[in-house]
Design a protein around this nucleic acid. Structure first.
Lengths: 269, 269
DNA sequence: AAACTAGTTTCAAATAGTGAAACCTGCAAG
DNA sequence: CTTGCAGGTTTCACTATTTGAAACTAGTTT
C-alpha cells in the first residue's frame, strides 16, 4: 500500500484516490475512503468530486458509493492494447499454452512489483494466486526474478528496498543477499526458477523478455506443480520459452518504432 | 475532438493529456502532443512529467515517445471488474450468444458516445466496426439509440448536441428531429433497431438495461446482416434479449447495494 | 429534544500551477 | 567551423487554485 507520499501535486493526490477506490473490489463510501486516505475531509471530498466530474469515478447518490468510472474503463482498455505486451504476445501465448499444456504467465514490472498482464490456464487447471491484472511480489516469483536479474544495476537497490521479504514458504528467499546470488545464477543461465518460493507445490521456469538494447520489457513463464513436474522437466522447456520471449521482444520493438524511426543516437541506457 | 474546456483544475488537464496520448494508437512525440493540445509548451511539459512520474504514462527516452503507462494497465483490470456491467453480464452473454449464434454486444454510455464493454462474435463471424473497449456513435447504433431513448429528458438535448450527425450510410438519421421520432418509437416498442444506419448490410436489435429506478445502465444487442436476417427476424428475439437485460439489471443492482448491515462504525481514523 | 454521524460548504492563508521567454543541445546547412 | 534552427528543458514573477479547520446541514439514534 504505502500510498504515494511523492509530492507531485494535485494530480498525484487525485490518482492516489483513484487507486484507493480501485483497491476495493466493491463500491466504497466516502467515510471508508476518508479512513484510509491521508487527506482531510474537505480535500478528499473535492478530489472525489473532481474525479467524478471527469468520469474517472462514478458516484451513486442513492447508495453514496463511489466506483471506478467509465472513462477509466475506456482508457484502461486502450492502455492494455497500447502499452502492454499482451496484444502482441497473445497468439504466442496461445501456441505455447497449447504446446506445453501448463499454466503460462506474461508479466511486466509495475513499480517494484510484478503485474501479470496475461495468463493461460493449464489443461488441467490448478488453483493458484496469480490472475491477469493482479500484482504479485517480484522477489519470490519466477517472472519477478527473471526481470530483476536483467535490470540495470543502478535500479536494483531501489527495487530491492521495496520488497516485503515476507517468508511465504520455507524456500522463500528472504534477504537481498540470497536473492542477489540467485539473480547472478539466473543471468548466467538465462532463465529463472521458482522452486516453491511463493506457494508450496508450485514451481516454474521464467525467462525475461529483453529488447535489443538489453532493456527489460517483461517476462514469460511456464508454471507447474511438484506433483506433475520437476525443475529439471521445466528446464528443458527453457529454450522454447526463450525463443518465444525473443519473438515477443522483436515484435514489440518493431511496434514501438514505427516507420519514422528517427535514428536518434541511442546512447546505451 | 473538442477536448475538455471544462475548467476543473489541474487534474482535468492532466486527464485531458492522458486522453490525448490514448487517442493515438502508437507512441507519441512531445511535439505531436503540443500541436494537438491547447496548453503552452511548459505546461504540457510539466503535465507529461507528472503523469510519467505517476506511472500513468511511460516515456521512452530513446525515441522521445510517450505511451500509456503500466499503472493504467493495472487499473484496467479493476476498472473492468468493478465498474462495468461486463463481469455480471458475462455468463448471460455467453448463453445468449450460444442461443442465437449471432454477434452480441454489451454497451454503456460514455459521455455522449457508446462504449462497447463486451462482445461475442457470431458463429459465423462478420467483419464489423465494433470491438470491446472501443467507442462508437450513439445516434446511429442500436445500443446507442436504445440508451438515448430512456434517458431523462433533461439530459437528452446536451447529448444530442454532441453527436456528429455524420451520414455513414443513406439510412443514417442525420438530424435530432429524425432521431427524436425514432426514440419515441423505441420507447413505445421497448427495443431499438439499427437498420443499416451505421454500416451497410449490418442490422441489429437492442434493448436498454434499466435499473428499477428507470436509470439507464447500458444496452444489449444482437447484430446480424441483411444477408442472413431481416428486422422482423430480429424483432422476434426482442423478448429474449429483454429478459436477459432485465436479469443483468437486477444483478447489477444487487451488487451495487451489498450492505444493509451498516456495521457499527469503528471511530478513530 | 438532544446527541451523533455522515456529508457538504466556507474562507483566509499559502501553496502550487502558469506560461512567456530564455536557455540548452544536437543536427544540418552555410 | 560556425551559424541557424528545431526539438526539448528550465527559469521566474504572477496569480489562480488548493488547502483544511471549522462551521453547517440533514438524517439517525438515544
Amino acid at each position: 500500500m504505502a500510498a504515494n507520499p511523492a509530492g507531485d501535486g494535485t494530480v498525484a493526490k487525485a490518482l492516489d484516490v483513484l487507486d484507493l477506490v480501485a483497491a476495493h473490489a466493491r463500491p466504497v463510501r466516502f467515510s471508508d475512503l476518508l479512513g484510509e486516505s491521508p487527506y482531510p475531509k474537505a480535500t478528499l471530498y473535492r478530489l472525489l468530486q473532481t474525479l467524478v466530474a471527469q468520469g474517472m469515478l462514478s458516484y451513486d447518490p442513492g447508495a453514496g458509493c463511489y466506483t471506478l468510472g467509465i472513462r477509466l474503463v475506456r482508457l484502461a482498455h486502450v492502455a492494455w492494447q497500447q502499452s502492454s505486451l499482451a496484444p502482441i504476445a497473445r497468439p504466442l501465448l496461445d501456441r505455447l499454452s497449447a504446446e506445453v499444456g501448463e499454466t503460462v504467465h506474461l508479466a511486466q514490472l509495475d513499480n517494484a512489483q510484478v503485474l501479470y498482464v496475461d495468463k493461460r490456464n493449464a489443461r488441467d487447471p490448478v488453483r493458484m494466486y496469480s490472475q491477469a491484472g493482479k500484482v504479485g511480489p517480484a522477489y519470490c516469483t519466477g517472472v519477478g526474478k527473471a526481470m530483476l536479474a536483467f535490470l540495470p544495476e543502478t535500479h536494483l537497490p531501489g527495487i530491492l528496498a521495496q520488497q516485503s521479504w515476507h517468508r511465504f514458504t520455507d524456500r522463500t528467499l528472504t534477504t537481498p543477499e540470497a536473492l542477489q546470488a540467485d539473480l547472478a545464477a539466473i543471468r548466467a543461465r538465462g532463465h529463472a526458477f521458482d522452486n516453491e518460493e511463493h506457494e508450496p507445490g508450485i514451481i516454474c521456469v521464467a525467462v525475461p523478455i529483453l529488447s535489443t538494447g538489453g532493456q527489460v520489457l517483461g517476462a514469460l513463464s511456464v508454471t507447474s506443480t511438484t506433483a506433475r513436474s520437476s525443475l529439471g522437466d521445466l528446464a528443458r522447456l527453457a529454450p522454447l520459452i526463450g525463443d518465444i520471449a525473443q519473438t515477443i521482444a522483436t515484435e514489440a520493438e518493431n511496434w514501438r518504432f514505427p516507420e519514422h524511426s528517427t535514428p536518434r543516437t541511442r546512447k546505451r541506457a
